[in-house]
Deep mutational scan, measured.
Amino acid sequence: PTIVLKVSPEELKALEKAGVEIEKIEKNEDGELYITLTPEALKKAGFE
């Protein structure tokens, strides 16, 4: 199962800087950012 999270541009930068593997980055028509994370990326980021 993949996880989709709504993030701010600042959060996205912080995640990328931390080396979190982001599978997909999407922006909706309201300009909101959503990222898709794999279970492996979540484990690496410390989420179980």
Rank of each mutant, 00 (worst) to 15 (best):
Y34A: 04
P39S: 11
V20Y: 02
K44W: 05
E32L: 10
E23W: 07
Y34S: 06
E48V: 13
L5S: 01
K43E: 15
E29T: 08
L5A: 02
K6C: 08
E40W: 01
I35Y: 00
P1C: 15
K6D: 01
P9F: 11
G19M: 08
E29S: 13
L15K: 00
E23N: 09
E16V: 15
D30S: 15
N28F: 07
E16R: 10
V7M: 05
I35A: 04
L42K: 02
E32V: 10
P9H: 12
I3D: 01
I22H: 02
L33Y: 12
K13Y: 14
G19Y: 04
N28E: 05
I22T: 02
L33T: 09
K6E: 03
E16C: 13
G46D: 10
I22Q: 00
V4S: 06
Y34K: 06
E40N: 02
T2S: 12
D30A: 13
L33P: 01
L42Y: 15
E16K: 12
T36W: 14
V7Q: 01
G46M: 06
E26V: 11
T2W: 13
A18N: 09
G46E: 12
I35K: 00
K6Q: 08
K27D: 06
P39N: 08
D30M: 14
P39K: 13
D30E: 12
E32M: 12
V7N: 00
A41F: 02
K44A: 15
K6N: 07
E48M: 11
K17V: 13
G19P: 01
L5F: 08
P1I: 11
E48Y: 02
I22R: 00
V20P: 00
L12R: 01
L12G: 01
A41L: 02
N28S: 13
E29W: 13
K24V: 06
K24C: 10
E16M: 09
L37N: 00
K13E: 11
K24W: 10
E11I: 15
E10C: 14
T38M: 06
E21H: 07
E48I: 15
E26W: 14
K17N: 11
G46A: 06
E16I: 14
L33V: 14
E23V: 09
V4M: 09
A14S: 11
S8G: 07
E23L: 14
L5M: 12
I35S: 00
D30F: 13
G31T: 02
A41N: 10
L15F: 11
F47V: 07
S8N: 07
L12D: 00
F47I: 11
E48K: 02
I35C: 02
V20G: 01
A14F: 12
A18D: 05
E23T: 09
T36D: 01
P9N: 06
E32S: 13
P9L: 10
K24N: 10
K24A: 13
V7F: 02
S8K: 08
E16Q: 14
L37E: 00
T2A: 05
F47P: 01
L42S: 04
L33S: 04
L33H: 04
K44I: 15
I3K: 06
V20C: 04
E23H: 06
K44S: 15
A18Q: 10
T2V: 09
I3E: 03
K27I: 13
A14H: 12
E23D: 08
A18W: 10
T2G: 08
K43A: 13
G31K: 03
D30K: 09
P9M: 10
T36N: 03
E10N: 10
P9D: 11
I22M: 08
K44E: 15
K17S: 13
K43V: 08
E29K: 12
E29F: 11
I3H: 10
N28G: 13
I22K: 00
V20S: 02
L42R: 02
E23M: 12
K27M: 11
Y34T: 09
V7K: 00
A45V: 09
G31P: 01
G31V: 01
A45D: 03
V20A: 05
K44G: 15
L12Y: 05
A41V: 02
S8H: 07
I22E: 00
A14K: 15
V4E: 11
A45G: 10
T38P: 02
V7Y: 01
D30T: 11
E10L: 14
L37W: 01
V4T: 15
F47T: 04
E16N: 11
E40S: 03
A18S: 07
E40Q: 03
K13V: 14
E29Y: 10
I35L: 06
K24G: 07
K24D: 04
K43R: 08
T2P: 08
L37D: 00
T38C: 04
K6V: 07
K27Q: 14
G46F: 05
V4Y: 06
L12M: 08
G46P: 08
I25D: 01
P1D: 09
A14V: 14
S8L: 07
K24P: 01
K13D: 14
P9G: 08
T2H: 15
L5H: 04
K27N: 09
E11Y: 15
P39R: 12
A14T: 14
E40C: 04
V4K: 13
L33I: 15
E10Q: 11
A18P: 00
E23Q: 11
